[in-house]
Amino acid sequence: MMKKLLLAVLMAGLVLGLTAIAEPSPKVGSVAPELELPSISGQSVSLQSPRGEKKVILAFFTSWSKSCQAELDALADLYGKNRGALEVLAVSFDKKSKDLKNYLAKADLPFPVLVDKKLSTLDTFQILIIPTTFCINEDGVIEKVFVDFDDNVEKAVEAWLGS
């Protein structure tokens, strides 16, 4: 019974962005950890740079996952609708550069794609399932974390952007 309660609170925290009792680190309500990774073009990109100006969506993905592809398509739409008020950083865990490049050539994403072949952000952001998405406010505070992707997640991200 207690386990079910803890799970319900955790999942509610992940999906609804509420503070959970047993939540993954980094926590909803805490400042997002720093992140600096090379982009697909080799340029170093930091999570810090957009802070204080725009909301940030940090999306962890792999190119072969259908759920990740659906999420990145949705984020590309949201990015277009919220241009100027939103930064999106997509972090790829792909091991094979060729697979990632082939996917990106087709997907034509309008935001930076960062490469984390060594999985250095896996522990920092406690990623277990992909896609995992962090919604970070203008002060760098994590307001929502979503694990996996479906229509409900898309609606919740859209609602967060409008809040």
Binding site: K3, L6, L7, L10, M11, P24, S25, I129, V147
Partner: peptide
């Protein structure tokens, strides 16, 4: 050993009808 990982994995399994002990 990480509680958040146990809960995420057990949640995924229980969603699919399995009974989980952690």
């Amino acid at each position: 050993d990480q509680e958040s990982m146990r809960l995420i994995i057990s949640g995924m399994l229980e969603e699919n009808g399995h009974t989980v002990v952690t």
